[in-house]
């Protein structure tokens, strides 16, 4: 009856063999099948940024990506940014220091996006950071602190 396919995803440096329907999104595969809940489902229609992950080092939305589509590519989630027990990534540390979140639900997506924002060279000014972080909605309203955190992390990285 069901039309499952076998795929192997490379997530956070580990191969993960999965059997799933082609229509399963990367977001649902990460959360429901791999138990990687750090990538959040906020809108499931590409409008909030909570599901931001890296594919081959670039930030994308996992809710509008099929799991099957990324076979053969490198997927990095918030869990892969720094391993448990290890030192936090400079962007993670900056988010904590600047109080750049409240409820924390958009935070993994914000952090993944911020890592890319800096890597892309789009953290050159507060105005640029604001624009290039606008794909990540934060309803608690941590935006000014997110800008401060990205600025701090960008300076730390350089």
């Amino acid at each position: 009856m069901s039309n499952k396919i076998d795929i192997t995803l490379n997530v956070n440096g580990r191969p993960e063999a999965l059997q799933l329907e082609p229509r399963v999104t990367l977001l649902d595969a990460l959360r429901e099948q791999l138990g990687l809940n750090g990538t959040k489902k906020g809108c499931d229609q590409g409008q909030c940024g909570a599901c931001t992950v890296h594919i081959d080092g670039e930030r994308v939305l996992a809710c509008l990506t099929l799991a099957a589509q990324v076979e053969g590519r490198e997927v990095t989630t918030i869990e892969g940014l720094s391993k448990p027990g290890q030192k936090a990534h400079p962007v993670q540390a900056a988010f904590l220091e600047q109080d750049a979140f409240q409820c924390g639900y958009c935070t993994p997506g914000q952090i993944m996006s911020a890592v890319s924002c800096i890597r892309e060279g789009h953290a050159g000014s507060d105005e640029e950071i604001r624009e290039y972080m606008s794909g990540n909605l934060c309803r608690c309203g941590a935006y000014p602190h997110i800008v401060a955190a990205v600025r701090q992390a960008a300076e730390a990285v350089q």
């Binding site: 590409g46 940024g49 931001t52 670039e58 930030r59 994308v60 939305l61 509008l64 990506t65 996006s113 890319s116 924002c117 892309e120 789009h122 624009e131 290039y132 972080m133 606008s134 794909g135 990540n136």
Partner: peptide
Amino acid sequence: LWQSASAQLRNM
């Protein structure tokens, strides 16, 4: 282009 959608969507 850079005023379209969001950085993530533009990467996709």
